[in-house]
Amino acid sequence: MSPVLLYLSFLLFALGVLVVLTKRDAIVVLLGIELILSAAILNAIHFNQQFPDRMDGQLFALFIIVIAVCEAVVGMSIIIRVYRYYHTAVPDQINELNER
């Protein structure tokens, strides 16, 4: 069992967190979340190698990919709505909750 996959998933996770925390644009933040999910998928596959007779990790990875797609769709649609409403997709500039 080589820890290469773990390092890779750590790298992805760290990059994802960094993107989520530092990027101002919500779309890029969404990309960061995708990176974090990728790290999670890698982890699921990696830890499933300890139990070769079972397929739980792989199945879970497939579910996560599906959920990630759904999440991306929902997220993108929210961002588009927000953009239409506020004319920006930068969360820091959205500081009003009341109607215009």
């Binding site: 989520v20 925390l21 969360p91 820091d92």
Partner: peptide, 12 residues
């Protein structure tokens, strides 16, 4: 700070 990412940072 009122910034979403700031809260996220604190959560992490």
């Amino acid at each position: 700070s009122g910034k979403v990412q700031g809260y996220l940072l604190w959560a992490l």
